[in-house]
Design a protein around this nucleic acid. Sequence first.
DNA 1: TTGAAAGCGCTAACAG
DNA 2: CTGTTAGCGCTTTCAA
Lengths: 338, 338
Amino acid sequence: MTARPTMRHVAEAAGVSLMTVSRVVNGEPGVAPETAARVERAIRRLGYQRNDMARHLRRKDQGTQTIGLLVDDLANPFFSALARAVEDEARLRKYVVLIGSSNDNLRREREVVSAFCARRVDGLIVVPVNGNHRYLRAQLMAGTKVVCVDRPAGNLEVDTVVVDNRNGAHQAVAHLLSRGHRRIGYLGDHRNIWTLQERYAGFCAALGELGLEPDPVLVKHGMRTGADAARAAADLMRSGNPPTAIFTTNDLITIGAIQGLGEDAGKVAIVGFDDFALAERVNPPVTVVAQDPVALGATAAQLLFARITGDTSPPREVVLRTRLIVRGSGELAPLQPA
Amino acid sequence: MTARPTMRHVAEAAGVSLMTVSRVVNGEPGVAPETAARVERAIRRLGYQRNDMARHLRRKDQGTQTIGLLVDDLANPFFSALARAVEDEARLRKYVVLIGSSNDNLRREREVVSAFCARRVDGLIVVPVNGNHRYLRAQLMAGTKVVCVDRPAGNLEVDTVVVDNRNGAHQAVAHLLSRGHRRIGYLGDHRNIWTLQERYAGFCAALGELGLEPDPVLVKHGMRTGADAARAAADLMRSGNPPTAIFTTNDLITIGAIQGLGEDAGKVAIVGFDDFALAERVNPPVTVVAQDPVALGATAAQLLFARITGDTSPPREVVLRTRLIVRGSGELAPLQPA
DNA sequence: TTGAAAGCGCTAACAG
DNA sequence: CTGTTAGCGCTTTCAA
């Protein structure tokens, strides 16, 4: 546990000035090859590695080559795929990524984002929790670039990358309606999440076009986990007048619902938002409205790095398209309850 | 895009010395409430936030409150669940997490780890790629704590958290053998990955106990993606003398194999390493040897933080248990090829 | 080609 | 209770 060597130690060991070491470490020209070699040797012998904290403190122009990424839940495959895409974009530019999960909690989001900003990240990619994001204003004014992904942030004009949630949901529900379904259940996460507001709105709009209204008995909000969805789905089917179809509004909920349905899975049509592994191997295969988390993450990162490298154009909103993938579960005919 | 305010600016604005601001910012005692209030106001007005880079530069004892986490592939649900567990442990201690994926590439691992160390992380949790990890020695000597998870690192004596891969694989294959299977296929990732060496060893050991040897025709190594596994599984079944059972050695491969098998999925018994979402809803439901990524991540993080807070006991190896979950696919009887 | 001095933003260690 | 001084490890600026 020796103390970490500094440039000063290297300089002494090589018999040169600290400044010469700095030049060698940073590959700057104007050092005699002979001298450079001596310094290199000292570096290797002492196991010296540059301290980028100190470096970035002095070099105000260059930033910290670090970005922060805040998702809802890193354990959700949707967000981890998004995160991996961000990481790859960062790596191309020799940036590293600080990561955090808000868990749909504004306080936690704020704490994590603050911790990132205290470390002077050059930019922030945020999946914003519902609520007011003014607290980011100070960071924006101080020069930290911010991009929102998956959802826009309330009260904040920054680049945003989302998918056409409302259309996607509309398409899913219209698909069910076109097959003759009229009693369509809705299983969703908290209504305070923007994407779910949009998806619910799409659900209602599709029904409305046929003069229908959502049946409150068939609509369940606030499901955070697959287990929640499993229970809710089972409850729906056990009720007196069960739905003939269900719209499940994210991957976790779709998967949970299928688990909860058990043997009933073949008795109710399902269309889910988000594609997921093995969707085509379940019985029946699951029809979904797919979005592309990799494209979301990559696009957000590209926008962020454009800002970091000086883009000052007005904030943009990029809307990526969703895609209906027909596999079977959404094409089941309405089944009369036994 | 105003320049970021510093303590000096706050001090001027509040008409006090820089040191007083420091005390207020850090909640240190010995500031008159009246003065503190004035400083607080200036802080808020200027939008000041402490620069932790500068702070940690001066406070040598305290570290940077940052750890680095390097996994194989963050997009793999196994690693993202592990990562989330690490993040949660870090958060409890007010640490932030730098994250990276090695993609099973030693050079990439080294580059990312170097970038983390240049930012002076207090500790590192690494899923080590196969190869020599001496390069970490210098960091260890400089005081950076290291914990390996999922796999041990060659030539490095550090805390390590793994599962009993060999036993798990043995159990999986013995299960198939006990059902009468004798032609058992093996689908695995690169053999240079430690976990896969172990799992392959368990596969061979189980066969060996019945005097059998792996049939080279039925053994496929080097599958990195689900698509690779899908192709390999389909090839196996199309061959002249197909296996009656397959041991798939991680989640991605199991899922890929099931996709690739398509309608053949019911014709060949499968036991997979790693549990995964919807395993019980596939037809037939998939028997697996499950490991717990959350426990792996949480345990690794706990060991790391123990080291960071001064634990100097000899390096430990923690081996977590795997668990056979019987669901159906592993219990299919051997089927004679048509 | 090399080095000395100053200072990035902050805190430790002392004064008053 | 408040302020001054020095210095963390590095880069910038200027001088030799």
